[in-house]
Design a protein around this nucleic acid. Sequence first.
DNA 1: TATTTTGATACCTAATTCACATCAATTTAT
DNA 2: ATAAATTGATGTGAATTAGGTATCAAAATA
Lengths: 300, 300
Amino acid sequence: MSIELRHLRYFAAVAEELHFHRAAERLNIAQPALSRAIRSLEGDLGCALLTRTTRRVALTDAGRIFVKEARAALHQVDVAIALARDAADGKIGHLAIGYMDFAINGPLPHILSEFRIENPGIAVELTHLWTERQRTALVTGEIDVGFMIGPFDAAGITTTVVARENLVAVLPEHHPLASRDSLRLEDLRTEPFVLGSQDTWGPFRRLIGELCLDAGFVPDVVQESHSSDGIFDLVAAGMGMTLYVETARHLSLRGTVSRPLTPAIAQIETVAAWRTDSTSAAVHRFAEYASRPPHGAGHN
Amino acid sequence: MSIELRHLRYFAAVAEELHFHRAAERLNIAQPALSRAIRSLEGDLGCALLTRTTRRVALTDAGRIFVKEARAALHQVDVAIALARDAADGKIGHLAIGYMDFAINGPLPHILSEFRIENPGIAVELTHLWTERQRTALVTGEIDVGFMIGPFDAAGITTTVVARENLVAVLPEHHPLASRDSLRLEDLRTEPFVLGSQDTWGPFRRLIGELCLDAGFVPDVVQESHSSDGIFDLVAAGMGMTLYVETARHLSLRGTVSRPLTPAIAQIETVAAWRTDSTSAAVHRFAEYASRPPHGAGHN
DNA sequence: TATTTTGATACCTAATTCACATCAATTTAT
DNA sequence: ATAAATTGATGTGAATTAGGTATCAAAATA
């Protein structure tokens, strides 16, 4: 009735052997079945592909062109099959990742570079999103994986902690307190603060607020910024000081210095999160990398 | 057992509708058959293409990639079918044409240009071959169509006359006889002749020989050349004169002049020839053009 | 003239595909 | 909360079809 891949496979074999018996042997079928299949194919096409005398088989012009195109079609099917399997194995695919500042300045680059080297077939797309925004992005499928401040509880979302860091105070380079090796939170009672904006840095702002309250004061926020860079620039400009995660040490080359807070009053968690019911093998594969204990530059 | 186009067609429909019942309707089959076919496809692939709840159907990553590739495969099959049919109709194909000098200086360009304009899908390959050589080339399939001096009789070869021309005498520009409007063959009795070489211009040489003998002399051949250009160059250089078909008038801009032979003692036939049993639709199509009566510049 | 080669045909069997009826799970409506 | 509707999966029997064996017919070869 209609043309199937079987017909193409059979015809390709006949076109190569130019001999029904040998072609049938190669296809592991009997010669009459092959003869009939080819005739049926010709019938469906409405044109002859072969000229057969009882002694010789030859391709017609149409046959010559058809084998070429049919082979291409068969190859394309093989490609489709191979790619589907690779995709199922998570060898190829697409991954939309959302991240916030602590992640990109912390564990994310390392996780990402390892992942990309070992999974070159997976295209990764990075989007900067504040923690709260990632919640909806995960649910809508806008992103497959999110990196945000923990703890992060949401129905149907699985998380794993990728970093657990102490806080540091970040001060202008020439600030009086910069001469000390470490600081207590209470020492900052009267200092002007530069912090992330309330709307985009919600969870971290709330955390800072609680810690300061525990230390017996309300921070005097003199400036806000949406970005880490903005905050550091303001600190460097002497507008005030800020609290950040340890990793900020790496960034202390812009007129700021960072000093550990002692005692270690809080551990800031950065978590990776993805939909628990995700069918994406790429996500599962990535989740493994995110769940590995941090290597090297960790702090213990 | 093995993946067939049916599976791809079915899956493409499901992937578009994301609904088994609607997809089945579009495919004109019942829903259970579709469900089973897709499961069988997934089994063959060894991976899931769809996630189905009882209420919702969604593509997996593998499914997303597989539809794309499967669609490409289906398209390639359609292309194969369309091209095979076009080839059978002679809309596309390949044509190897052999020609000798009279043809390329005569009717061939016109036939060819009409043919190529109206059959842009057929690739034409031209080969210069002397008449005798075309006989074997036709049989071996080296060429599909030949243009040569007629009559041309060979088993299994069909011919059609594409030109029937009178002879002209071609003289050096300043030759005494050039002053006359027309010449009789007898006038050339004592002239030196430049003719095509015996081995490659066999039929024409024999013809000239017979005509001269009828006129009561044997031509004094002082020079030979394999090519028309070579002959004309030798004539222009004053080595002698030659006989050629009328069409040579078009070429009389190289120090030669041509004068009709009167009375018209011979009609030189140029014929097109092809294998009678040719399966090539391109050949049949071309044969139509060759068999059309010559237009325009003909002589009657 | 006999033999071999090779594709086509006849006939039968086995596998596959499909449709109908039905089920089970889930969502929607009342 | 319960009934109804939606939707994909499953069971079963029927029909189509692909394949195998035996055989034929034509052409080349000895």
